[in-house]
Amino acid sequence: MMYRYLLLLLLIIVPLEAAELAEAFYSPDLGSSARMIRRGNVEGFSSVADIVFENPAGLYRIRKFSTSAFSTRFMDEVEYKSLSVAFRLPVGMVGIGMLGTSVSDIPKTFKDEESGEFDVSGYFNYKNYVSKLSYQYSTSRYFHIGASISYYMTDFDTVSGRGYNSDVGFLIDSDALDFSFVVKNIMRSSQINYTDSSGETATDIDGNEVATSELSSEGMKEELPLQTYYSLKYSLVHFQVYGQLKTVGRDRKFVKSVGLNFNPTYLPFFHASIGAKQSDVMQSIESEVGSNIQESMSMGVGLDLLGVNFDYAFEKSEHIEFDNKHYFSMALSF
């Protein structure tokens, strides 16, 4: 019993002690399913395989097998796709998931020395993948722990980045109130290491050639951002209320999320949700530069038909042209 409390204490203290030193690696934390997004991105309460992206301790909710797929497209350019599988073994639950981000046809440019204008010399693609291997074990009906190994990789043009890290979490499940806690990227010394095979040169404003070392990413590192999530779910007849605190960024800012799900007992297969969340974004708006907390709302519906789940979520975007985001996900569980 003692080790359990020591583990809890460790998990809660570590995030407060951690200091971030390098730049943060882009981590696609937009959500792993439409269900989670329509509830305000509150993590830890999915009951299908995509829980591997949220809190591996939540795998206990899957009986034997589950698979989940998620897809969306932003700004007509950015493709998000995820696929996850979870299954029960005699020693516990195991989950595997991959979440990918890709952008195609990015122009590679050169400078016309005569005119000083820029032109296209070719095109390249951008890919970013996060893969997770999760394991979950239940110590009792109420207490569940889980851990994940995460592998990160990114490729674009002549640049490649690779790194790994791990997530640790636990869940306390009571009848009406559930509590989820997870620390992501807990290995502080593990970073993304980059290689860059380019030997290109460039000229600066004054026409001087820029040193290749200024342009190359060879040997560069990015930190995998430490993230902690404290999430609650309270069930009340037809409704489930969700709340979450998440720490992000160098200064350990707290960002909040809330969600409300309507799942009437007389229509047990139907879900309708609304949520609100905060995000921490570094911005340079006119003369104002800094890290700002932005708020957004989401909503959506879902159907749970004999173990097959269909979910849709809608979210407003602040993009001047593509101001609506649509998410679709599907899951199969038994």
Binding site: I106, P107, K108, F110, F118, V159, E200, D204
Partner: peptide, 18 residues
């Protein structure tokens, strides 16, 4: 076209991109 040169580029440099 509106283009950025160089692309890709390192923001963490004096030159950056244009």
């Amino acid at each position: 076209q509106a283009l950025v040169y160089p692309n890709p580029f390192r923001q963490n440099s004096d030159f950056g991109a244009e």
